[in-house]
C-alpha cells in the first residue's frame, strides 16, 4: 500500500503534468490516512512527553523562580522601608526629647542666673541703701554742724559789725536775741 502510494506522486511531479491519472484531492486520499495517523501519533506523543517532562517544568521553574525572587525582593524592600520608618520615628523622638531637655536646661539655667543676679542685685541694693543712709546721716550731721557754725559766724559777724558801727561790743545776750529774732 505505502509502496504503491510511494510511486504515484513521484510520477506526477517528475512528469510535471498535473492532469495525470493521480489527480485525487490529496487531503481526501484515504490510503494516506493510516501513515499520517501513525506518524502523528509518534510525533505528538514524543512532543507531549518532551514538553511535559522537560520544557514546561523548565519554563515553569523560571517563571516561578522569578515570581519568588520578585516577591522576596518586595518583602525585603517593605521590611527595609519599615526599618527606615522606625529609625526615622526613633530619630524624631530622640530629637524632640533632646529639644525638651535642652529647653528645660535653658529654662533652668535662665532661672538660676536670674536668681543669682537677683540676689546680687539685692545685696547691691542693700549695700547701696546702707551707704545712702550713711551718706544721708553724714549730710545731716554736716548740715547740723554747718548750721551751728552759721550761728557762731553770724554772731561773730554781728558782733564785729556792731562793734565797728557803735564802737563797742554788744552783749552776747543781745546778739543771741537778735539772731533768734532773725531766725524766726
Amino acid at each position: 500500500m505505502a509502496q504503491a502510494q510511494a510511486q504515484t506522486p513521484h510520477a506526477t511531479t517528475e512528469a510535471h503534468g498535473g492532469a495525470h491519472a493521480d489527480v485525487g484531492f490529496p487531503p481526501l486520499k484515504t490510503e494516506t490516512f493510516a501513515g499520517q495517523l501513525v506518524w502523528l501519533a509518534i510525533t505528538f506523543v514524543l512532543l507531549y512527553v518532551l514538553l511535559s517532562r522537560l520544557v514546561l517544568p523548565r519554563l515553569g521553574g523560571i517563571l516561578e523562580h522569578r515570581r519568588a525572587t520578585i516577591a522576596k525582593d518586595l518583602d525585603d524592600a517593605a521590611a527595609m522601608k519599615q526599618r527606615a520608618e522606625d529609625a526615622g520615628l526613633a530619630y524624631e523622638t530622640a530629637l524632640s526629647e533632646a529639644r525638651g531637655r535642652a529647653q528645660a536646661l535653658a529654662q533652668e539655667t535662665r532661672s538660676k542666673l536670674a536668681a543669682e543676679s537677683d540676689a546680687k542685685r539685692k545685696v547691691l541694693e542693700a549695700d547701696l541703701g546702707t551707704r545712702l543712709a550713711e551718706a544721708e546721716a553724714t549730710i545731716q550731721a554736716k548740715k547740723i554742724q554747718a548750721m551751728s557754725n552759721v550761728r557762731g559766724i553770724a554772731a561773730d559777724t554781728a558782733t564785729a559789725i556792731v562793734e565797728r558801727l557803735t564802737g563797742k561790743a554788744p552783749s552776747a545776750q543781745a546778739i543771741d536775741a537778735a539772731l533768734d529774732h532773725v531766725k524766726a
Binding site: 505505502a2 509502496q3 502510494q5 510511494a6 506522486p9 513521484h10 506526477t12 511531479t13 484531492f25 490529496p26 487531503p27 486520499k29 494516506t32 493510516a34 501513515g35 499520517q36 501513525v38 506518524w39 502523528l40 510525533t43 505528538f44 514524543l46 512532543l47 518532551l50
Partner: peptide, 24 residues
Amino acid sequence: QFQIKPIIPAIGFTNSSLFMIGAA
C-alpha cells in the same frame, strides 16, 4: 502542494511525517 510524497517508503516516512517531526 498538498500531495503526500514518500521519503523513506519502507517505514512509510513521508513529507508529512518529516514536517510533523520537524515541527516537534
